[in-house]
C-alpha cells in the first residue's frame, strides 16, 4: 500500500490537471476560421512574402478576410489559386504566371573589365567602387546578391552574369530588390524575347565596353510587325504585352543583345 501511494497521488494529480486543461481549452479557445486553416494548407508554405503579406499565414487570413484575392499567391500559381477559389466558393480569376529575367548579356567573354575587384563578395559593395568591376556600369556585377536572395534556388551566376532558371522561378520578386543595378525585371512567362541590355549609353560606348549590348540601331523596332519594340533613347525595349513571339527581331539584331527564352511551362495546367 505504501508503495502504491505515490503512484495514486501522481495519477490523481494528472487526472485533475488534465480535466483543468481540457476545461480551459474549451473556455479560452481562440476561434480560428476553419477556412483559414484549409487555405493555409494548400499554400506552398515558403513564407516568401511575394503576395505582399507577412507570410503564408498572413495571406491565408487575408484571403478569408477579403483583403487578398484568391489568385494573390504568385508562387502557387493557377493550381493553388483554383484550390483557394474552391475553398472560398468563388470563381478564380486567371493568374498570368510570371518569371524574373536578368537583363544583361555581359558575360566575361562579352564584356571587358575595368579593374580586378578583390574584397567583399557583394554586388552592392563592388558597385560602390566606380560602378563595379565590369566595363559597363549598367550591367550585372556578378557577385550573386540575387542568388543569395532567392529562396527557391532559381538563380545562378554563369560566366559573371546572373541567370534565372525559368522553371524554378516563382516570381516572388526578392531578386529584384536585392539587385543594386536594378537589371532584373518581371515579365509574363509566355513572353519569349527580351533585349538583354540596360545600358542607355550611345552605341559607340556600348560597343567599346560589351560586344553583346544594345547599340540602339533600331533595326528591331523597324522590323517588328506589331510595333512592340520601342526605342528609349539608344536602348530598345520589347513590350511583353504586345509581343507576339514571332522572332523577327532576333534575326536582324547585329549584336545579339536580343535573346530567346524557352520557357518550360511551370507546374500548372
Amino acid at each position: 500500500m505504501e508503495l502504491l501511494m505515490p503512484a495514486y497521488i501522481i495519477g490523481g494529480l494528472g487526472i485533475v490537471f488534465g480535466l483543468g486543461l481540457a476545461y480551459a481549452s474549451k473556455v479560452f479557445e481562440v476561434k480560428v476560421d476553419e477556412k483559414v486553416m484549409r487555405v493555409r494548407e494548400v499554400l506552398p508554405g515558403a513564407n516568401c512574402g511575394a503576395c505582399g503579406q507577412t507570410g503564408c499565414d498572413g495571406f491565408a487570413e487575408g484571403v478569408v478576410g477579403g483583403t487578398c484575392a484568391a489568385n494573390g499567391c504568385p508562387v502557387g500559381g493557377a493550381q493553388v489559386a483554383a484550390q483557394i477559389a474552391s475553398i472560398m466558393g468563388v470563381e478564380a480569376a486567371s493568374l498570368e504566371s510570371k518569371v524574373a529575367r536578368v537583363m544583361c548579356n555581359g558575360t566575361f567573354s562579352n564584356c571587358s573589365s575595368k579593374f580586378q575587384y578583390s574584397g567583399i563578395e557583394d554586388c552592392t559593395a563592388a558597385a560602390n567602387l566606380f560602378g563595379g568591376p565590369s566595363a559597363c556600369s549598367y550591367g550585372c556585377v556578378g557577385m550573386g546578391n540575387c542568388v543569395r536572395a532567392c529562396a527557391f534556388g532559381a538563380i545562378v551566376v554563369e560566366h559573371g552574369v546572373a541567370k534565372v532558371i525559368q522553371s524554378k522561378c516563382t516570381s516572388c520578386g526578392k531578386c529584384i530588390q536585392s539587385c543594386p543595378k536594378k537589371i532584373i525585371t518581371m515579365v509574363p512567362a509566355s513572353n519569349e524575347y527580351a533585349v538583354r541590355c540596360m545600358s542607355p549609353d550611345k552605341g559607340n560606348i556600348v560597343r567599346k565596353n560589351c560586344t553583346a549590348g544594345c547599340i540602339g540601331c533600331a533595326k528591331c523596332s523597324k522590323v517588328c510587325p506589331v510595333n512592340a519594340i520601342k526605342m528609349k533613347g539608344a536602348l530598345a525595349e520589347i513590350d511583353p504585352q504586345t509581343c507576339i513571339n514571332c522572332g523577327e527581331c532576333i534575326k536582324v539584331c547585329p549584336t545579339g543583345s536580343i535573346n530567346r527564352y524557352f520557357c518550360e511551362q511551370q507546374s500548372i495546367d
Partner: peptide, 16 residues
C-alpha cells in the same frame, strides 16, 4: 577581415 569595406556596404544598405 574586410571591416571598413563592410562598414561602407552597411551604410549603403541603410541608405538604400
Amino acid at each position: 577581415r574586410y571591416l571598413v569595406q563592410s562598414m561602407r556596404l552597411g551604410k549603403t544598405m541603410l541608405r538604400n
